[in-house]
Design a protein around this nucleic acid. Sequence first.
DNA 1: CGGTTTTGACCTGCGC
DNA 2: GCGCAGGTCAAAACCG
Length: 353
Amino acid sequence: MPFWCGRKRIPRDLTTFKVKRTTDNDGTSESLSLLCHDKVKGVGEPHLAISMKEANEASDLGARACQRSRRVALEALGNRRKDQIPFRQPTFMDVPSSVKDKAEGVEAELEQLQKENAALRLMLQVMRNKYKMLSEAYFRESNSQVPTICRGLTRFDLCEDQHSHKNILIPQLQLAANSSQVFVETDPRDESHIVKDGFQWRKYGQKVTKHNPFPRAYFRCSMAPGCPVKKKVQRCMEDKNFLMVTYEGQHNHEVNPSIGQSLSSPSSSATTSISGFPNSVLDNPLRSAIDLDLNLSSENSSGNGNGNDDDYNNKRSMEDHIAASLAKDPSFTLALAAAVARSFTEHPKPPTN
DNA sequence: CGGTTTTGACCTGCGC
DNA sequence: GCGCAGGTCAAAACCG
């Protein structure tokens, strides 16, 4: 980070420097010289010089304190020229004590608000995850309320993205032989067609189809030469939160576990095949809350900014209902309290820049 | 420099 | 045969 003084830049490789004040021949103006202790230019060699006027303009940070000190000096020195008043870099000591007290009070208040904000964000995240699990369980068990996207699907796979730790709901639809279709929940703002499914893919085409405004991307498996598997990825028109992925063919190689979990092949051993939700999650709210994604990122919200008003209102009403139910759940409250308490002892303090 | 992505052109299948 | 839509090719661009 370069250091700027007035309009002159001080090189970053300087180790130390001194400021020398000089007066010109007629004594009407003074200037400041920067003597650099520089490996390149040598010790004490003048590196730059600025006039008093420039010096006075140099620092916005201390400008007001400087002016105050210069005013005091002018009063003390009577009718001497302004330019003859020595320049002094402002320090924290120049700030009046009343202002310092006020600043410290504001800082303490800010710190308190940051803590409260972090706790509230954590509570919101836990609530959101709890809501998501319950709403998914609700949809699963209520045939009459299955969303359009899930009609005709045969099973659900619940996987966890290894990078975002975001749970993704993967209903699988059996198509023709050697072909399967999965739905992967992603951020609707994400325009990429990246699906971490354990294989490497090479994109070979993209097409806008007639009945879907979102482009369809075509991929070939590039993990092994001659692998015949292809996949098509297109955002679902009915629900922008889901990517519709269609796989065709059988891989002629093994999955690379470092890339992600396999979603493509129903028979793949790497697929987390769960017809529903793990008992440990549903039966033990305390554990589930502790195991929840505590990432405070707001990016993974399934989002209401892009949806239409009906979707948003429906989701809000359901969210309100579930939130009210959760508030009555003593085990959830206990889990939430434990998570919040833990956040204060384990969560790293946010940077204070 | 090699692998990947982009994108317009081309190919293919289907309905009329 | 023609038009349309989906799928694929391949050259250029991009990127690490």
